[in-house]
Amino acid sequence: MLVQTIAWITSLFFMILVVAVFAVVAWKSRERKDYAPIKKKWYKARTFYGAALIALMLVLTIYTLRELPYNQPVYGAGNEPTVVDVQAVQFGWNISENEFKVGEPVEFHVTSKDVNHGFGIYDEEMNMIAQTQAMPDYTNKVFITFDEPGTYEILCLEYCGLAHHLMTADITVTE
């Protein structure tokens, strides 16, 4: 499943939960009860709620931090990555190599000649699959192995001037 889909479903779930809580409290606001017992009960509930929330966040933090896109994958012997130099310029991409094979590990070493740009890789359905910033004086890396053949598109993802939206390029992945 796409990361975007997971993010969307997770967000939707919790946002609906928030809507429900606010709706219920608004609905219940029409009753008038003494505050002291409410306070006592719900302060107690808060201890559990707070603890549960912290636990949930901790689990999610640890789970999502196991594998970071910054880390170079461990390559097996004889499976050296193809290093591709990418230089962003206003308003285009200089890519040293743009044809790859499925299963071939690729490292994009991304920099910029002028201003900040963003190097975003889109698949054929126009879903973003990876990105990094293209900065002058610095080189950011994207580690990727394409699983599907097809034409992938590079889009600029950091506002860089008036032709920002025209800054695209194609790469081809074959079987």
């Binding site: 796409l2 990361v3 975007q4 997971i6 993010a7 997770t10 967000s11 919790f14 946002m15 928030v18 809507v19 606010f22 999610l60 999502t64 931090l65 594998e67 970071l68 896109p69 963003g118 975003g120 879903n127 973003m128 699959i129 990876a130 990105q131 993802l157 950091e158």
Partner: peptide, 22 residues
Amino acid sequence: VVGVVPAIVDATIVVNHVMHNT
């Protein structure tokens, strides 16, 4: 509160990898 939810999701590095600047 409702805005905090997608903000936290986006602050997750692996999600940000495909959602940053979208």
